[in-house]
Deep mutational scan, measured.
Amino acid sequence: NQASVVANTLIPINTALTLVMMRSEVVTPVGIPAEDIPRLVSMTVNRAVPLGTTLMPDMVKGYA
């Protein structure tokens, strides 16, 4: 099973992502692959992402 990116904290809308905000976890449904974490750093989220939420491609500006 592939690990996905999961919010390690509440990420407010329009926040630039940092490494400490994200962790990898095997979850269903599958979200952004964990190997993309380095690429996500400094990208911003377009909605509030609660703790434990899987990051989906449409949640990160410029990812999809």
Results as ranks from 00 to 15, higher is better:
S4A: 03
G31R: 02
V6S: 02
V20Y: 14
G62Q: 10
A48K: 09
I13E: 15
V41K: 06
A64R: 14
E25F: 04
D58E: 12
I32R: 00
I37T: 15
P29N: 06
S4N: 02
Y63K: 03
A34D: 08
M22W: 02
L51S: 13
P57M: 09
V6Q: 04
S4T: 04
T53F: 12
V30D: 15
E25P: 01
T53R: 13
V30K: 05
S4D: 01
V45A: 03
V26R: 03
G52A: 10
I11L: 07
M22E: 02
I37R: 08
V45D: 01
S24H: 12
V26I: 10
A34M: 13
T18I: 06
R23I: 10
T15M: 09
P33Q: 10
T9S: 10
M21W: 03
V6G: 00
P33K: 06
V60G: 01
A3D: 14
Q2K: 05
M22I: 14
V60C: 02
A3T: 09
V6I: 13
V5G: 00
V60N: 02
M22P: 00
N14T: 06
G31F: 03
N8L: 06
I37Y: 03
V27K: 11
M22V: 06
V49F: 03
G62Y: 07
E35A: 07
G62H: 08
A16Y: 13
G62L: 09
D58A: 10
P29S: 07
T28G: 05
N8D: 12
M43W: 06
N8Q: 13
L51D: 10
R23F: 04
G31C: 03
A48W: 09
M43K: 12
P50G: 13
A3N: 07
V26L: 14
S4H: 00
I13V: 14
L51K: 09
M21N: 14
P12K: 06
T28F: 09
A48I: 12
D58R: 06
T15L: 05
S4I: 02
I13A: 11
V26G: 06
P50H: 15
S42D: 09
Y63F: 11
D36K: 06
K61R: 14
K61E: 13
M22A: 01
